[in-house]
Design a protein around this nucleic acid. Structure first.
Lengths: 232, 232
DNA sequence: CGCGGCTTTGATGTTCATCAAGTAAAGTGG
DNA sequence: CCACTTTACTTGATGAACATCAAAGCCGCG
C-alpha cells in the first residue's frame, strides 16, 4: 500500500497539522495525540459497522469513504460519500453510544482516530474549539440532508447526471476519473436499481455524453449533464 | 390566542427553566436572557424563511412546527416536524449565515429566541455546555436523516402508516388526535401526491384501520399499521 | 478450472404520478 | 351577511416511469 507507507513518518504530526484542530494549543494537541492512532484501510475494508460502540472519533486524512445504512429488509443504502476533511465521522458521535451508520473505504484510505472521551475533555476546557466543532458537525449534517433532498427530487437520468457531476466537480475535480463505486453501489447511493444504473450509463455513452473505459469515466458534455440534472 | 396569554408571565424565566440551558450558571443565564425574546405564532405563520439571515437561535417551547425546503421547481417538501424541545432550529445555525430551510407553525406556537452571537459567546466560555450542544445538534441531525431514510424505503401505504404512527405514538401520544397537517402537507412530508394521500387514507378508513371525523383522526388498528409499515 | 459476484440487455408488470372534473369548505370584499 | 373566489378535498381514468424477473457473458479469485 504505497499511499499509506509514504505517510507513515509524517503521521505523528498529523494531529498538529490538521485544520480540524486549529485553535488548540500545544498542550491540548499533545493530550489528544497521546490517545490518537491511525488506521490504513484498503478499498472495501470496513472502518466501523452500524451498531458498533462509539469509542473513538475518526476523520479521514486521505482516500474516500462511504457512509451506509441497512434498511429493515437488510438492503444497503449509501447515505453519503466522504472525502478528506469532510467530517462525516462526526454524525451521531456526540448523541449516541453506538453508530447508526457503517463506514467503508471506497479507496485505500488513512483514518485518524482520537479517543472520544479525550476529545470531549478538550472541548469542555476550550469552548472556542467547541464552537468550531459545532460548525463542523452542522456542516456535515447539512451536506447529508441536502444531497439526499436533491437526489430524491430527480428522475433516474437526473440522478445519474448528479452523481457524475459530483465526481468530476466536487470529488476528483477533473473530467476523467477512476470510478470508485460499482454499478450496484451507485444504485445504492442514488436510490435506483443496478440494472437502471447500467441502462442509463449506456445511454449516456451512446449519446456521446460520457466515455467509459474499464473503470475510467470521462465526462464529455458536462453542460448536458447540468441541464438533465436540473429539469429532472 | 389562549395558550400564548397563559404563558406570558412565566416567560421571563423560561430560559432559566428550559432543559436546553442546564449547566449554565446564574450569570450566563442572565447574559442570555438579556438578548432573548419570544414570539407567538398562529397556525400557518412563518417563523423564518429559507435564505433569511440567521441572527438568532430559536427553539420551540410549545406547539408544533414544520421544517421545509423548496426544490428547484419551487415545489415545497417538508423535511421534518418539530415538537417542543426538539432542537430542529439548530440545523445549519452554526455553519451558515443564512437558513437553508423554512420554519412554519403547524399549531399555535411559542418560540424563544436567543441572540446567536451571545450563545456562541457563552459556549466559548463554557465548553461543557458546548459538549451538550454538540449532543443536541447531533441528535437533531440524526432524527432528520433517519426519518428521511425510513420514509424513502417504504411504499405509499407504508408511508401513510408510518406518519400516522408517528402522530399517535411520538407526537400526540394518544390514538386520537387533531391532524395538524392538510392532505397536501402530508404528501409533502412523506413524498407523495395529495391524491394518493387521500386515496390511501380512504382505503384505511374503509378497512376500519382508522376513523376520520373532520380534522380528527383515530387509529383503531395500530398493529395493522405497524405491519404495513414494516413490510412496505 | 470453476464458482460466485458483477455487468449487461431484453421483456414484463406494478406502482405511482398526472390529468380531469366535481364537491365541500373557508376566506374575502362589497 | 351574502355573493364570490380561492383553497382543500375526493374519485376515477390513463399513462409513464421504474422495479422486477430472466438469461447470458464477463471477470477475478481461490
Amino acid at each position: 500500500m504505497k499511499i499509506a507507507e509514504s505517510h507513515k513518518e509524517e503521521c505523528k504530526s498529523c494531529i498538529y497539522s490538521s485544520p480540524l484542530f486549529d485553535g488548540l494549543d500545544e498542550e491540548e494537541l499533545a493530550f489528544l495525540a497521546k490517545t490518537s492512532s491511525q488506521g490504513f484501510y484498503r478499498k472495501s475494508e470496513v472502518i466501523f459497522n452500524e451498531n458498533d460502540e462509539i469509542l473513538r472519533f475518526c476523520f479521514l486524512k486521505l482516500g474516500l469513504l462511504k457512509l451506509s445504512k441497512k434498511d429493515e429488509e437488510g438492503k444497503c443504502h449509501i447515505i453519503n460519500i466522504a472525502k478528506p476533511n469532510d467530517c462525516i465521522g462526526l454524525l451521531s458521535v456526540f448523541s449516541n453510544t453506538h453508530y447508526k451508520y457503517s463506514l467503508t473505504a471506497l479507496e485505500d484510505s488513512i483514518i485518524y482516530y482520537v479517543d472520544l472521551a479525550a476529545l470531549k475533555h478538550v472541548i469542555s476546557n476550550n469552548g472556542k474549539f467547541g464552537v468550531k466543532m459545532l460548525a463542523r458537525i452542522s456542516e456535515a449534517a447539512d451536506k447529508v440532508i441536502t444531497t439526499t433532498f436533491e437526489i430524491n427530487n430527480k428522475n433516474l437520468r437526473g440522478r445519474i447526471a448528479y452523481i457524475l457531476l459530483d465526481f468530476t466537480e466536487n470529488i476528483y475535480k477533473k473530467n476523467s476519473f477512476e470510478c470508485p463505486v460499482s454499478r450496484k453501489e451507485m444504485g445504492q447511493l442514488i436510490g435506483m436499481t443496478t440494472e437502471n444504473v447500467i441502462r442509463i450509463l449506456s445511454e449516456f455513452r451512446k449519446d456521446g455524453i460520457i466515455e467509459i473505459t474499464g473503470k475510467t469515466v470521462k465526462v464529455l458534455k458536462a453542460d448536458f449533464l447540468h441541464t438533465l440534472q436540473r429539469l429532472a
